[in-house]
């Protein structure tokens, strides 16, 4: 029987991924599937959901972007410091077809990395679109090159790769070649654009959603979606694009830790 208790481990490596974004390798076995997340506990402070971005036989890794109180504290940690891991949680991406495109915006790219590795090991034709505001925030450039993954980079300011958004890059791909399925994780506005593009091109898409999460395993209700009531942490985080586009709150609003609604 599995219990929802943290496994507390010492950070074995800190990787500087980009400006204000670090990965932490943690010695624990989760047997996570691509797209799943875990709750990372900063002992005595707080625990938050984070995508699993690395996985080997005896390690997982998470990539944290320093934006607020919890993530800034995590990003100050060094090798040997303690973090607790709960999970893995959520459903997983399922690769469909022979030609796939992965679209990641900001730290959302983290949740696509195990899928990218899986696509390569299945010898699929995989293209990854990685977007950020500016070059200094682009994630995984070295790792993607080492993996031998076809990648397109976009930045809002054109400082690296294509100027524009991941959706612009995807639109061009969808126009020029046959794509079987598209996998997406990033800011909700971007996800909405990508889902609409895929719908209009009749290509299947799978979107990983982010909502306030407090437990991660379906009990607290914090991540419940309108109008289905589906819990992002259990029935998601990944939903088919057509379903996501039907969701009343998608691209519109989300709830905070008191369940108060906020518009995007």
């Amino acid at each position: 029987m599995k219990f929802e208790l943290p496994i507390t481990v010492r950070i074995s490596q800190v990787i500087e991924e980009a400006n204000g974004i670090k990965s932490f390798l943690l010695p624990c076995q989760l047997k996570a599937k691509p797209g799943q997340f875990c709750m990372i506990w900063l002992p005595g402070i707080d625990a938050k959901p984070v995508g699993i971005s690395y996985q080997t036989k005896d390690h997982i890794g998470v990539t944290v972007c320093a934006v607020g109180p919890w993530s800034k504290k995590v990003c100050e940690l060094k090798e040997g410091d303690l973090l607790g891991v709960l999970g893995p949680y959520g459903n997983a991406f399922q690769l469909e077809g022979k030609t796939v495109v992965l679209v990641g915006g900001g730290y959302g790219t983290a949740s696509l990395m195990l899928l990218a590795e899986e696509a390569l090991s299945q010898k699929l034709t995989a293209t990854m679109i990685i977007g950020a505001k500016t070059e200094a925030q682009l994630l995984y450039r070295k790792r993607v090159a080492t993996l031998g993954l076809g990648a397109i980079y976009t930045t809002d300011d054109g400082s690296f790769g294509e100027r524009g958004t991941t959706a612009d890059a995807l639109a061009r791909i969808l126009k020029n070649q046959k794509v079987d399925s598209v996998y997406v994780c990033g800011p909700e506005r971007m996800e909405k654009k990508v889902a609409e593009l895929c719908r209009d091109s009749k290509v299947r898409s799978y979107i990983s959603l982010e909502r306030q999460m407090k437990c991660g395993f379906g009990v607290c209700g914090a991540c419940s979606l309108d109008d289905s009531g589906k819990r992002v942490c259990v029935e998601g985080t990944i939903f088919p694009g057509e379903e996501v586009l039907q969701m009343k709150e998608f691209g519109q609003y989300h709830r905070d830790s008191s369940a108060t609604k906020h518009h995007f």
Partner: peptide, 28 residues
């Protein structure tokens, strides 16, 4: 009042069942 509740973890499970300190988070 509006309550954000306690920091996480707010719910754990163990062989005896479940323990929670949600802290009455609710929008008021």
């Amino acid at each position: 009042e509006v309550r954000k509740g306690h920091p996480a973890p707010i719910i754990l499970t163990y062989p005896g069942g479940m323990i929670n300190s949600v802290g009455y988070s609710n929008p008021g």
